[in-house]
Computed example of a mutant assay.
Amino acid sequence: MSGVFSMNPLHLVAVTGGTHGNEMSGVTLVKHWLKDSTELARETFTAVPLLANPEATEKCVRYYERDLNRCFTRDILNSTESQDEPYEVKRAREINREFGPRGSVNAYDVILDLHNTTSNMGVCLIVSEAHRHLEMHACHYIQTHLPNFDPQIFLYKEPGSELYDLASVSKAGIGFELGPQPQGVVRGDMLQKMKTLVKVTLDFINHWNQGMEFPAFEVDVYQRVGHVQFPLSPDGEVSAVVHPSLQDRDFFLLHPGDPAFLSLDDQIIPYTGEQPVYPVFINEAAYYEKNIAFILAKKMQVSVPALSSTSQKRTL
């Protein structure tokens, strides 16, 4: 991709935690920043902390009635409110009104949404699509300034699907997914990495606001293309577990015929896909209710145009 991408300064920035109430790095940091937001202040803006799902956070569960991070679909945000609808549906509309509305000129410029996973994802930067140039520049800035974190970029939106996550309310949104970390547990190393990721990203936004320009680049990304379910017995029970040779191998290539599952009677069940893929979110605890063993991704290189304040202004 050639050319130059340009945009206005970014002043409305939010950092959200507790979108899933048992992912404790974001919960802990946002609670801290609600008391003292000094770390979120920069010369050109101060980011707003938000505890996204207070009910789930209080109970230390992923969600209270419905997964909040799947409630930002067009149908839900535009539907008529009713008294008996799930708490998270009401909460999604509240967040959309306060930080959006999605697609409007009044929407927040950037939302950083903080998550943990039980999978061995390391430091993962989640963006909806590769053509989101601001998000891609922010991710590249993080990769450049935190090479020891080895951050991977994951594009969650499959072709033809719609946006559904909290960060999609703003004009630009990035999810930080760090793991492995058990649900309901704070790991100090993950907390420190999360705090550093937020710091570096806010620095990036501040540099842009101060006139820094960012050159074009090429970068590897992992595009979601599907998922694999656990094998089930005739009575609907899980009949095999993730194979030990696949466990913790997020972002490593999986070939057709490689072991994928180990049955409860010790039989190896191979991966039966037609092409090599990169599994991610392997054995994620929160996906058991969906019967998802791991997500499938393809690795590809994308070109991102320069980000410059000197060319004609365009919107995101």
Rank of each mutant, 00 (worst) to 15 (best):
S2A: 13
F5W: 08
F5I: 06
L12T: 11
V13K: 03
T16E: 01
G21M: 13
G21S: 15
S25W: 09
L29W: 00
L29D: 03
L29C: 06
V30W: 03
V30G: 03
K31F: 08
H32Y: 05
H32Q: 02
L34I: 11
S37M: 10
S37F: 13
E39L: 12
L40N: 02
L40R: 09
A41M: 15
A47M: 13
A47I: 12
P49V: 09
P49F: 05
P49D: 03
L51W: 08
N53Q: 01
E55V: 07
A56E: 13
K59Y: 09
C60A: 12
Y64W: 14
Y64P: 07
R66W: 03
D67R: 09
D67T: 00
L68Y: 09
F72I: 12
F72R: 03
R74G: 13
I76C: 06
L77N: 08
N78A: 13
Q83F: 12
D84E: 09
Y87V: 10
Y87I: 04
R91C: 02
E94L: 15
E94V: 12
I95D: 05
R97L: 04
F99A: 05
R102Y: 01
R102M: 08
N106F: 13
V110P: 13
D113W: 08
N116K: 01
S119C: 02
I126F: 05
S128A: 15
H131I: 13
H131W: 08
L134I: 10
A138C: 07
C139Y: 08
Q143V: 00
Q143K: 10
Q143E: 07
P147T: 11
P147D: 05
D150A: 14
I153F: 00
Y156W: 15
Y156H: 14
E158P: 05
G160L: 06
S161W: 02
Y164T: 02
D165E: 15
A167N: 15
S168M: 10
G179M: 06
P180I: 02
D189F: 00
L191V: 03
L197M: 00
K199L: 08
T201D: 01
L202Y: 00
N206F: 09
E213I: 12
V219Y: 02
D220N: 08
R224I: 11
G226I: 15
V228Q: 03
Q229L: 12
F230T: 06
P234L: 13
P234I: 11
D235T: 15
E237G: 14
V241E: 15
P244I: 04
Q247I: 14
F252D: 06
H255S: 09
P259E: 01
L262Q: 04
D265F: 08
D266V: 11
I268E: 15
I268D: 11
I269V: 04
I269R: 00
T272R: 13
G273V: 01
Q275P: 05
I282H: 01
E284D: 09
Y287K: 10
E289D: 06
I292C: 03
A293S: 01
F294V: 10
K298W: 06
M300Q: 15
Q301E: 04
Q301A: 10
Q301I: 14
V302W: 10
V302M: 04
V304I: 01
V304G: 02
A306W: 01
T310P: 12
T310Q: 14
T310H: 08
R314S: 14
